[in-house]
C-alpha cells in the first residue's frame, strides 16, 4: 500500500491504517525515540503518543503529506516533550537554560535514515549486518548463530553492503 493511500485512509478515520503505518515506520520511530531518550519504556511511550497525535491530526493532513517525514518530526518532538517531563525536577526561570536533549537533531536524523535503510534489507542480509556491526561477532560466530556456512555469511554481507550503498545513493538523489 502506498504512503498516499495510507494517508487517505487515516484522513477517513480508518484505524487499520495505523497498523499499516506501524509496520512500515514503527521500528525506525522507536529507534529515534530510543536514541533521544535512552530508555526502552519511554521510547515506546513516545511511539504510542506519536501515533495518537497522528491520528488526532489525521483530518488536517494534506493528501500528499510525506508521512514518513511527518512521523519522524512528531516522534522527535514527542521525545523532547517526554525528556522534559522526565527532567521535571529541573524547573527554570525565563532566562535560564531549559533541559535539552543529550543527542543532536543530526544524530536523530541519521538514526532515522540508517534504520530506514536497514528496514529495506532482506531478512537474511539484515541479520548478518546486525551480527557483525551491532553484536560485533566474527563471520564464523555469525555463521554459527544463523546456522549457515561462512561463505553464505560473506555473500550476504557483500550483497547487503552493495544494497546499503545503493540506498544511500538514492537518498542523496532524493535530498538533492
Amino acid at each position: 500500500m502506498s504512503a498516499h493511500s495510507l494517508v487517505a485512509r487515516l484522513r477517513n478515520g480508518d484505524p487499520d491504517a495505523v497498523g499499516r503505518l506501524y509496520d512500515e515506520y514503527g521500528q525506525r520511530m522507536f529507534a529515534v525515540a530510543y536514541k533521544a531518550l535512552g530508555d526502552r519504556s519511554l521510547a515506546e511511550e513516545a511511539v504510542q503518543l506519536t501515533f495518537l497525535k497522528t491520528w488526532q491530526a489525521a483530518e488536517r493532513l494534506e493528501p500528499d503529506t510525506e508521512i514518513g517525514g511527518w512521523l519522524y518530526t512528531i516522534t522527535r518532538r514527542t521525545a523532547i516533550d517526554l525528556y522534559r517531563r522526565e527532567s521535571r525536577h529541573t524547573t527554570v526561570s525565563l532566562d535560564a537554560e531549559i533541559v535539552a536533549l543529550p543527542t543532536t537533531f543530526e544524530d536523530l536524523w541519521q538514526v532515522w535514515e540508517v534504520r530506514s535503510m536497514i528496514d529495506r534489507l532482506p531478512d537474511g542480509e539484515r541479520a548478518v549486518v546486525e551480527s557483525l556491526h551491532y553484536k560485533r561477532q566474527t563471520m564464523q560466530e555469525t555463521a554459527d548463530e544463523l546456522g549457515v556456512p561462512v561463505g553464505t555469511v560473506k555473500s550476504r554481507t557483500h550483497r547487503a553492503y552493495g544494497r546499503l550503498a545503493n540506498l544511500l545513493g538514492h537518498l542523496r538523489e532524493e535530498s538533492a
Binding site: 514503527g26 521500528q27 522507536f30 529507534a31 529515534v32 530510543y34 536514541k35 526502552r40 521510547a43 515506546e44 511511539v47 541519521q110 538514526v111 540508517v114 534504520r115 536497514i118 549486518v129 546486525e130 556491526h133 551491532y134 560485533r136
Partner: peptide, 11 residues
C-alpha cells in the same frame, strides 16, 4: 551508525 545500538534495539 550501523554500530549504534539505537538503530538495532527492537521495539
Amino acid at each position: 551508525r550501523l554500530g549504534d545500538p539505537a538503530v538495532w534495539e527492537p521495539a
